[in-house]
Computed example of a mutant assay.
Amino acid sequence: MGKSISVGILFSLILSSTFAQEVSPYGKFQQDSVMIGEEIQYSLSVRYPKEWKVIFPDSTHDFAPFEFYEKQYFPSRTDSTHVFDSAVYRLSTFEIDLVQQLQLPVYLLNGNDSTIIRSNTDSVLFKELVVQVPDSLKFRENLSFQVVDYAFNYPYFMLGLGIFIVLAIGSFLVFGKSIRDKIKLYRMRKAYEKFSLQFERGIIKIKQSETNTALIEEQLVIWKKYMEKIEDRPFTKYTSKEILQMGFEQELKEVLQNIDMSIYGAIDSEEMHKNFEALEDFTLVRYQTKVKEVKNG
């Protein structure tokens, strides 16, 4: 048994080494330095044999010490034997390390499994806003006459503050739940309107390019992020199978299977936008259900 495991591990190492020789992802920052909170662009490119399937990391990947904003994917370029893919990531950092590094992987699909191949490590310098702080401060004397305000009437202030606190607590006890529900419903409505507008734009783009896997993957992430908010579950970390196991198999099984086949199986569909229209209808029903739950308390 132990010998079989050792042989399996050795085979995996040899296979990974072989892939690494054929696929060498290259990552690079588009500038040499960055300030805290400033946006910076990072490019990732890879060249690989035409018969292979390679996927770039998306918004669910951990970009630490950087924060992810957006991914821009470029159309593949091919020759007789190889494919060249590239993407640009918009990032920012709130860390203060003087040198900050990033290394991103690409995923080589092997049937139901995948092999991780990492790019080179690139660095960017953190630009400090305050370079030097003086050891001591010099104060300037001012002996001119200054008007001083009268003493503050603390007893009246404390009395008024006490009355205000009592009224606030009383109002909260009487109207608190109603106020909280209205605030929650308002936030839910604004979040859904924002999602609906963004999702509708994505469907229009997919109608224009039904086989663009980058667009399809980006649209699926937008849907998962919104579902996280209304269902309070980590949809962005769930696979399609795990989502269906939450009780949505009847509504979503065929839709999610079609989308997965397009992203991971490279199976084109001339009516891919209809799957996202079905997701849009499903999301509206879930939003309306959550609104009723809040109103009925």
Rank of each mutant, 00 (worst) to 15 (best):
R90D: 03
V131Q: 14
Q72P: 00
R77I: 02
F126D: 03
V106G: 11
L220K: 06
G297E: 12
V88N: 05
D181W: 00
I55K: 08
I206V: 15
M188L: 12
V83G: 07
W52Q: 10
T121K: 12
T121R: 12
R140L: 04
K182A: 09
I259T: 12
G37D: 08
A87S: 13
Q21Y: 06
Q146M: 07
K207E: 15
Q250E: 15
Y26I: 14
E271Q: 14
V54P: 03
Y238W: 01
T213Q: 06
E210Q: 15
D32V: 12
V285Y: 13
E218L: 06
V148S: 09
E210K: 09
S17W: 06
Q132M: 11
E280G: 05
K229E: 15
S16R: 12
S12I: 14
L129P: 05
Q100A: 02
D58W: 01
S136N: 10
S269T: 06
E95I: 00
K190V: 10
L15S: 14
Q132R: 15
I222V: 13
E38V: 01
V148P: 02
D149W: 00
D62Y: 09
R90T: 11
P25L: 08
D79K: 03
D85Q: 09
F68T: 10
S240H: 07
T289C: 02
L161Q: 11
I163D: 12
T81L: 03
E38H: 02
L15N: 13
E231D: 13
F145S: 05
A191K: 08
S4M: 11
P155C: 09
Y186I: 07
I263T: 05
Q245P: 00
Y264G: 07
F145H: 06
Y238M: 13
V83N: 08
Q41N: 09
A214K: 04
L108A: 04
